[in-house]
Computed example of a mutant assay.
Amino acid sequence: MRLFRSSELLGIARETLDFVLEASEETHPNEYMGFLRAEDARKLGLDRSGQVITNVLVIPGTTSNPVSATVRSEMKPNDVQSVGSVHSHPNGVLRPSDADLATFGQGEVHIIVGAPYERGDWRAFDNGGEPTTLDVIDVDLPEERFFDFTQADIDAELLEEGRRGGVVDPTNHDDDDSGGFLSWLR
C-alpha cells in the first residue's frame, strides 16, 4: 500500500456509482452511509496519473434512519485510500444539510444520492459543501477477494516453512501427528 497518493481525483468508476445507487435504494427509507476509497488510475488501465473512486467502505455499527446516518467513529480505520464520503437523502434533496457540512472535513469529495436513486440522482461536493464535478469513468475494476490466496499457496508456504524450521509437511497425512500448532490445518 502506498503511503502517498496522487492529489488529483479523476472521478468515480461507473460500477462503483451503480453500487452506491443500488445500496441507497436497498436502504431506503433510511439513509445509506459509507466512505469512498480510491485506486491509482494506472492500476485500472488508465493512461494518466491520479485516483479513481473504486469502492465504498461501510463501517460496522453504522446506524441510520430516514433523516440521518451515524457512524461509530472509533470503528473507522485510518485509511490512506479514503478520499471522502457518500450518503443518501431518502427525501431526494441533492444538497448538503448543516449536519452534512459538519461531517465534510475529511476527504476531497462527498457524494449525496437521492431518491429515486437513478443515474442522475447524485451530486458531488467539496469539503466546504460547494458543488464540484466528478466524472463517471468506465474502467474494469479488479476483482476484490478477501483472501487473495489458495489452499495450494498455503500448502507451499507450509512446506517451505517445514524445510526451514521443521514444521510438519502439510501434504503428509499420516496418522502420526506431531502436534505442532499448524497440525490443525491438515
Rank of each mutant, 00 (worst) to 15 (best):
E26G: 10
Y32W: 13
R14W: 05
T62W: 01
L101D: 04
T103N: 11
F149T: 13
T132Q: 04
F19P: 01
T132K: 11
G84V: 08
F104D: 03
A23I: 02
E25V: 04
S178L: 15
L17N: 00
G34F: 00
D40P: 03
V139K: 04
G11W: 00
G50W: 02
I137F: 01
S24E: 03
L101T: 03
A156Y: 07
R119D: 11
L57C: 05
N65A: 14
A23C: 03
I59C: 03
G129V: 00
I112N: 00
G120M: 06
A156P: 06
L158M: 14
R14E: 13
A152R: 15
D100K: 05
L9Y: 07
L182Y: 12
P90G: 07
P77L: 12
P77D: 09
V86N: 00
L10C: 06
F35Y: 14
E143Q: 15
E15G: 12
E8P: 08
M75D: 08
G61Y: 10
D169M: 08
P90V: 03
D148R: 15
T27N: 14
L36M: 11
S88H: 04
N30C: 13
R37G: 06
S49Q: 13
L36S: 02
T133Y: 06
P90A: 03
R186Q: 09
W122M: 00
D176I: 13
V58Y: 08
L10S: 01
D40I: 10
T27R: 14
V109H: 02
N91Y: 06
R5W: 10
G179D: 06
M33G: 06
G105Y: 08
V136R: 04
W184N: 08
D148I: 11
G11I: 01
G166E: 06
R119T: 10
D40L: 12
D79I: 06
